[in-house]
Design a protein around this nucleic acid. Structure first.
Length: 628
RNA sequence: GGGCCCAUAGCUCAGCAUGGAUAGAGUGUUGGACUUCUAAUCCAAUGGUCAAGGGAUCGAAGCCCUUUGGGCCCGCCA
């Protein structure tokens, strides 16, 4: 058990006291106290003030008196604070042992929210016509972090990446290659995805404005893309496969992996749409318009004042949102799966096998990536459309939260960064635009970080060989980028600034990683293996207790993060844990003590911290080096 | 015109779900700490009408209403 043990003990005892007082239905809180107010605190007296017609202070006096007479094992003292709060002080000898032993288990921090049910997390889902930019990275990191947190919460997670390989954006680069004479080979030293995005895509869309005849060609190519047998479709398959491979390299480099790639082209060609279309009709979820502005179309009725949404045009073709419906239904397993599966041509880092759908025969066994629930990570500009999908899926599954759209605000460019890209915004932030070439590629940011961290690491570790420096710089760069993408709430815009995002001090991943290096060094230098067979009563310093307490809060934080789908909860926890360790580090010596037993006890604590920060950072996809 | 989101220290953000103690961090500025378990660190000072107004409450940064400012969305585009 963790710090939750003492909270549970207090809560149970308070309930018994309430029963004795003949009061029930009081939803009091029992939570970790702010520093200076004991270890655990409860607001119970405030809530009792009205029913008992006494002041909170009087009540907390009574309660603390009653509580003292109770059996309590983990509480050493109860205090009635003049403010009215009831504050509890822990029996640290017992709690130390409880929390530090627990922290050594592999399952430390795990919570059972999922009951081993299957959940789908879809993220990334970028058109395969360009390199990933910093805005895509927020989606990817949020999705990957959520997946990790859900796995820790006992969900079986299927991570999907939807490859929109037949849309307009793909048609655009095909126009560039086939009609504007762009070479299929990128210039020397340039990745193919960067070339397609920076050069082919941007310059082709520029040409549309000058040459209106291109628009016809574009539409023709778009139609050919949907027909898998055309020569254009096959050419496009080759191009998008190359771009996708480059995009995946960027993701893998950041420690992000997937279970399956779903291709939009295959969903279209599989006929899933007609099955869903039938289902929508039989369930009366769509209506055919005989007159009005949407005459001849199938529509979903808008709720309240919302406009109706056209699903099938009067010419019989499906709209953009319509294409999302079969995929959403497929993710929830409400349709018979038309796909076969084969392994992706390259292995990803780590143990996860990457599959992809295919409509061809496959020697591989049939896979199942559907889930009882689905989380789709898409930026909040799509909220309106996602709400329609959510409503439909709730009806398909008869469960309101079967399909969850996890939205987040976009990443914009700071005025300064926009200026370096050639756009003067007069001091205002700027929306990124792939079409206008106004974006910062993820790979470029990573390279900048990498060269800076390489330099810093080399400076601090003059004796270190270059491959070790490279490895450490990599871990710090990945950590820094990932941490910047999730440390704030999903509903806050991230204003990306090329200079400021390179900071490695303060509330950043390197700050947290550094504490791990410090802890590792202490253990190394001690020359002994940390043991659990120590005297826990020796850990009495407030700095030690604060550290134990913070370690013991891990599972509560995981629960909070998973329940609220809020990755930043874990990033804050990591930061708070690091702060408490740093203050321990400054004020409590571990080595060079006369008392050998005290060294052992403190080593046990340091080791516990080390493995806990490792596990917590792992939920963020961040690896902490032993030295830095 | 309709809808969603945001507003807390000079700047970037926690806290808001579940109202209660001195509203916290980072960064910036100023000063201090490396012969010590690594200074990517720590300590101190500085800095707040919690956008404004109203309401309910014993009590509001938080809940309700209104207003202002900013962002986004509202196509038989994707």
């Amino acid at each position: 058990m963790t710090f939750k043990s003492i909270m549970d003990e207090i809560e149970n005892n308070l309930h018994i006291i309430l029963d004795g007082l003949g009061v029930s239905n009081i939803l009091f809180t029992v939570e970790p106290a702010k520093s200076g107010f004991g270890d655990v605190t409860s607001n119970i007296s405030f809530l009792l003030a009205k029913p008992l017609k006494k002041s909170p202070q009087e009540i907390s006096n009574t309660l603390s008196e009653k509580y003292s007479q109770f059996n309590h094992t983990l509480v050493s003292k109860v205090e009635s604070h003049p403010s009215g709060y009831l504050n509890f002080f822990a029996n640290w000898e017992k709690l130390n042992q409880l929390i530090l032993s627990e922290s050594n288990l592999d399952s430390f921090g795990s919570v059972d929210l999922g009951k081993n049910s299957t959940i789908v997390v879809e993220h990334t889902s970028v058109n395969p016509n360009k390199a990933l930019h910093i805005g895509h990275i927020r989606n990817i990191i949020v999705g990957d972090t959520i997946s990790r947190i859900l796995e820790k919460s006992n969900y079986k997670v299927n991570v999907l990446n939807y490859v929109d390989d037949s849309g307009l954006q793909v048609a655009d680069i095909i126009v560039g290659f086939k009609h504007l004479g762009f070479s299929q080979d990128p210039p020397e030293g340039k990745k193919f995805d960067h070339y397609c995005g920076d050069d082919v895509y941007v310059k082709t869309t520029e040409k549309y404005e000058q040459d209106s005849s291109l628009e016809e060609i574009r539409q023709k190519i778009l139609r050919e893309l949907e027909d898998g047998t055309s020569e254009i479709a096959q050419f496009a398959d080759e191009i998008t496969a190359k771009v996708l491979e480059n995009q995946l390299e960027t993701c893998w480099n950041l420690g992000v992996t997937y279970d399956c790639l779903n291709y939009e082209s295959q969903i279209i060609r599989s006929g899933l749409w007609s099955k869903i279309f039938e289902k929508l009709q039989t369930m009366n979820l769509i209506e055919f318009e005989k007159d009005g502005k949407n005459s001849g179309c199938w529509v979903i009725r808008g709720e309240g004042k919302e406009e109706d949404k056209v699903i099938v045009r009067s010419n019989g073709t499906a709209t953009y949102i319509a294409k999302d419906i079969p995929y959403a239904a497929w993710k929830l397993g409400v349709l018979e799966d038309p796909f076969n599966y084969k392994k992706y041509k390259k292995a990803q880092t780590g143990s996860r096998t990457l599959w992809q759908t295919t409509l061809d025969d496959s020697e591989e066994p049939k896979q199942n990536f559907a889930g009882d629930k689905v989380i789709t990570v898409i930026d909040s500009r799509q909220t309106r459309l996602q709400k329609i999908i959510t409503t439909l899926m709730a009806k398909f599954k008869s469960q309101s939260d079967a399909y969850v759209h996890l939205g987040y605000e976009s990443v914009t460019l700071s005025a300064n960064t926009a200026k370096t890209l050639g756009l003067d915004t007069q001091g205002r932030q700027a929306q990124m635009s792939g079409r206008k070439g106004l974006y910062v590629n993820a790979d470029s940011v990573f390279d900048l970080l990498k060269s800076k961290t390489t330099e810093e690491t080399a400076k601090r570790n003059p004796e270190m060989n270059s491959s070790e420096i490279e490895k450490i710089a990599h871990q710090i760069s990945v950590g820094t980028l990932r941490y910047e993408m999730i440390k704030q709430d999903l509903d806050k815009i991230i204003v990306f600034d090329l200079t400021k995002s390179l900071s490695l001090e303060g509330d950043t991943a390197p700050y947290i990683q550094y504490t791990h290096a410090r802890a590792t060094r202490i253990i190394e230098k001690s020359g002994q293996n940390p043991s659990m067979d120590v005297d826990f009563s020796l850990l009495t310093d407030p700095n030690e207790n604060n550290l134990v307490r913070m370690i013991g809060l891990f599972d509560l934080q995981v629960r909070d993060a998973a329940k609220n789908l809020s990755p930043k909860v874990i990033s804050r926890y990591c930061y708070d844990l690091a702060v408490v360790f740093n203050s321990f580090y400054e004020q409590v010596k571990v080595l060079d003590l006369d008392e050998k037993n005290l060294i052992k006890s403190r080593l046990c604590l340091v080791h516990s911290f080390k493995i806990t920060i490792e596990r917590a950072l792992d939920l963020l996809g961040i690896v902490a080096p032993d030295r830095m």
